[in-house]
Amino acid sequence: MAIPMKLLMIFALSSLFIISAAFAISDSPFIVAHKKATLTKLDSGAEHASVSIDIYNRGSAGSLVSHSFELVSRVKAMYYGTPAVITFRIPMKSKLQDAYSTPILPLDILADRIPAKKLELVTSSSSM
């Protein structure tokens, strides 16, 4: 007799929940990192990329650390970013640990974009 797919999914999700709860209760760090980037065109024909990495410790000593930097590009290109690698050490252990951030979507630097209309006024000739 085959086990229904829904039952397997419920079992898998509940297992992940229990494991993540155990990590949250433990004394060791549990690192979650988020990497994001935004592009801004400059009048000089260049594009400004702002990149930030937020690192959350979801373990017993919950804290947040952010790192940001800015890049300026004058070359039209497609940039594919990789996840950031965060190396840390758990107290009382000598082995270094690695955590990876979320990846960023590809950045189309100096691409021809249609400007987004922030405000659009609509007039109707029939309402006059």
Results as ranks from 00 to 15, higher is better:
109 I>G: 00
105 L>Y: 11
19 I>Q: 07
110 L>D: 01
38 T>R: 14
38 T>L: 15
72 V>A: 06
41 K>E: 08
106 P>L: 00
71 L>W: 04
61 A>V: 15
90 I>V: 05
48 H>Q: 15
14 S>V: 05
98 D>Y: 13
54 D>M: 04
51 V>M: 01
58 R>G: 08
84 A>D: 03
25 I>S: 15
9 M>N: 14
72 V>K: 07
82 T>V: 09
47 E>M: 03
12 A>N: 11
55 I>M: 04
106 P>G: 00
88 F>Y: 04
97 Q>R: 11
21 A>T: 09
98 D>N: 14
61 A>T: 14
16 L>I: 09
16 L>A: 12
41 K>G: 06
74 R>F: 09
74 R>W: 08
13 L>F: 05
103 P>Q: 03
111 A>L: 03
52 S>T: 06
53 I>L: 07
10 I>H: 09
96 L>I: 14
99 A>S: 03
21 A>K: 08
2 A>G: 14
51 V>E: 00
78 M>G: 15
23 F>K: 08
45 G>V: 05
84 A>T: 04
50 S>I: 12
22 A>D: 13
51 V>D: 00
87 T>Y: 10
44 S>M: 05
12 A>H: 08
43 D>S: 12
83 P>M: 01
26 S>V: 02
58 R>Q: 13
109 I>A: 01
3 I>C: 10
108 D>C: 10
68 S>L: 07
70 E>I: 09
55 I>A: 02
6 K>V: 14
82 T>K: 11
76 K>Y: 04
81 G>K: 07
57 N>Y: 02
10 I>Y: 12
82 T>L: 12
34 H>N: 12
78 M>V: 15
28 S>T: 08
22 A>P: 09
92 M>C: 15
35 K>I: 00
15 S>M: 06
109 I>M: 01
14 S>Q: 06
45 G>Q: 06
86 I>L: 04
101 S>K: 00
105 L>G: 11
110 L>Q: 01
103 P>H: 03
106 P>E: 00
85 V>F: 07
19 I>K: 09
55 I>S: 03
